[in-house]
Design a protein around this nucleic acid. Structure first.
Lengths: 156, 156
DNA sequence: ACAAATTAGTTCGATATGGAAAGAAATCAA
DNA sequence: TTGATTTCTTTCCATATCGAACTAATTTGT
């Protein structure tokens, strides 16, 4: 029987951190997005609405960048949202490759109804932590997230 | 920092934390799972292999619980893995509703080849943080993740 | 001006995921 | 025993996600 890879202290620590981080992020998301999803707007869609509402019309590529997702993805999300009447595409006249996505009145109305309680839920969800802990956690997350991109000198 | 939504300090803090947490978790996952995926094993599949390799045969329901995912989901993941020959289903003789999933020799071999370098990558990825910071981050994540489940008194 | 390279979006195929409902087997109630 | 309920798994449908290949429009190189 393979004895569970009794790793070093360092390894246990890293594995443990990875799991807890993933769990925390998922738990928070589940908790916070529940009501949004119940309102018929998926998390991705809500993110797009957020960007368009607060920033203004954006190209598909920019939206994708903002979400750290691939643009082929945004096509499908925006397709769905367009079908629901939340957003609309508009071709740029100057550069006809570019397509602007803009929020519709309906989208604006729905988003503005969801946003305040969304913020409330987030505040509530993180209130398990003291303000100082929230700051610390954010800082540690930022530091971890900004880890240098490994240029993959790997080879087995 | 031009913030959208001019909210209270508390709200900015919470929103900021939420974003950074999600980003950190995603960045870490992307970074760590890259090689696994390159080896032809999806993150979900790797998780299943991990459980089966280290714990032994499990029912679909238990695997789903372990991953905090829904069981209807596991059916599809296990389907794919069975097709690839990584695992196999075995019906329980006592309770014929139950299906045990077990790792195959092929699955065991593939997993045992991927696991050590996987751990290495994780250690490497979190090494941006000092051991103390890793402990702190894990603790904060745990605390946040264990936030009381809102029993949702709103039964309409 | 025309071919090549680049850029923006889209399409396709595969995987993952969740909710709802169906199927199958076990258990419980009368 | 039979019918109702519960439990485990599957199926169906919709969404999301990514990589690869494709189309269309712009820019660049010669």
């Amino acid at each position: 029987m393979p004895s569970r890879h009794q790793g070093t202290e360092e390894e246990s620590l890293a594995l443990d951190l990875t799991i807890k981080l993933a769990r925390a992020a998922q738990a928070l998301m589940n908790r916070v997005m529940g009501q949004i999803v119940a309102a018929g707007v998926s998390p991705s869609q809500f993110g797009v609405l957020d960007a368009l509402y607060h920033v203004g019309p954006m190209t598909l590529g920019d939206i994708a960048k903002k979400h750290l997702k691939s643009p082929n993805n945004m096509t499908s999300v925006v397709d769905t949202m367009e079908r629901s009447g939340l957003v609309e595409r508009r071709r740029c006249e100057q550069d006809r490759r570019v397509i602007y996505v803009d929020i519709t009145d309906k989208g604006r109305e729905i988003f503005s109804k969801l946003w305040p309680s969304h913020v409330e839920r987030i505040v509530d969800a993180v209130s398990t932590l003291s303000p100082q802990e929230q700051v610390d956690l954010a800082a540690l997350c930022k530091k971890l997230g900004q880890a240098p991109i490994e240029c993959d000198g790997s080879h087995d």
